[in-house]
C-alpha cells in the first residue's frame, strides 16, 4: 500500500528541485531527506518569565495579501508575553530584538524590516499592520502576535512546509517546522535572549 506522506514528500521534493533549477539526484547531487528522529525545538518556550511561540502560517497570503515566500521572504508569526510579575519591564524594542531564523541544518535567515517587505499595494499595508508590535510585554494569556520577516537565501528554496537547502555536493530536504527562532527582549537589567521552535499553522478556509 502506498504511503501518502511519503508520496507527498516525494512530490514536494521534486517540486523544490524544479524550483531550484537543479539537476536530478541521479546526476551530480544527492537529496538528503530530513532526519526522521528529530522532533524540532520546543514551542512555546521561555527564558525566565518571558514566553514565546512562533509559527509559520502556510496560507499567510490570506492575512498578508501575498505569498511572500515567492518574493524570497519567510514570514514568522511570533507571540511573546510574560508570565508572572512585570519586574524589569520586559519589552520588545527594535534596538534589541535582533531576530534570526535558523533552518534545520543551521542555515541562517536574516531579518528584514517590515518596511522592506512587499513592494506595493494591499500586501504592503497588511505587512505594516501585522508586523510584530513594539511594546511592553503583556501577560502571556493575552499576549499579542505579530509577524517577523526573514530573507530566504539564494541557496534555499521554500515550498509549502518544506525547504531545500543546497550546499557543496548535496541538497538537504528540511522541514520548516524544525526551524529555530532566536530573538531578544529588553529588560531593565539588559537584554534577554530567547530561543523558540517554529510550529506550523494553517488558517481555516473561509
Amino acid at each position: 500500500m502506498r504511503n501518502p506522506s511519503a508520496t507527498r514528500l516525494l512530490l514536494v521534493s521534486s517540486a523544490l528541485l524544479g524550483l531550484a533549477g537543479c539537476r536530478t539526484p541521479a546526476e551530480d547531487r544527492t537529496v538528503v531527506p530530513a532526519p526522521a528522529g528529530f522532533a524540532g525545538f520546543p514551542t512555546p518556550a521561555h527564558a525566565g518569565e518571558v514566553w514565546a511561540r512562533a509559527a509559520f502560517v502556510t496560507n499567510h497570503a490570506r492575512l498578508l495579501g501575498a505569498d511572500l515566500t515567492r518574493e524570497g521572504i519567510l514570514p514568522v508569526r511570533l507571540t511573546v508575553g510574560r508570565r508572572g510579575s512585570a519586574e524589569g519591564a520586559p519589552r520588545v524594542v527594535a534596538e534589541a530584538i535582533d531576530p534570526h531564523l535558523y533552518l534545520q541544518d543551521g542555515t541562517v535567515l536574516e531579518w528584514v524590516p517590515a518596511g522592506e517587505v512587499a513592494r506595493g499595494g494591499r500586501a504592503r499595508e497588511r505587512v505594516a499592520e501585522l508586523a510584530l508590535p513594539l511594546t511592553l510585554l503583556a501577560p502571556w494569556d493575552s499576549a499579542p502576535s505579530g509577524f517577523l520577516f526573514f530573507r530566504i537565501p539564494a541557496s534555499v528554496r521554500v515550498r509549502d512546509l518544506h525547504a531545500l537547502s543546497s550546499a557543496g555536493g548535496r541538497h538537504r530536504e528540511l522541514r520548516l517546522s524544525r526551524s529555530l527562532l532566536a530573538f531578544a527582549v529588553l529588560t531593565d537589567e539588559g537584554t534577554r535572549r530567547i530561543h523558540v521552535g517554529l510550529t506550523e499553522e494553517r488558517l481555516p478556509e473561509r
Binding site: 532526519p35 528529530f38 527594535a94 534596538e95 534589541a96 530584538i97 535582533d98 534570526h100 535558523y102 533552518l103 534545520q104 541544518d105 543551521g106 542555515t107 541562517v108 524590516p113 517590515a114 518596511g115 522592506e116 505594516a128 508586523a131 510584530l132 513594539l134 517577523l148 529555530l180 532566536a182 531578544a184 537584554t191 530561543h195
Partner: peptide
C-alpha cells in the same frame, strides 16, 4: 542589536557580521 533606525519598519542604521554559534548548535543537532 542596537541598530535599526526606527520601529520594525524602519531602515537599518547599523549592521555587523558576527560569528554564529547558534547556527552551529542547530547544525550539530541536525
Amino acid at each position: 542589536a542596537g541598530g535599526r533606525g526606527g520601529p520594525l519598519g524602519g531602515p537599518p542604521s547599523e549592521a555587523a557580521t558576527r560569528p554564529s554559534p547558534t547556527s552551529h548548535l542547530v547544525a550539530l543537532l541536525y
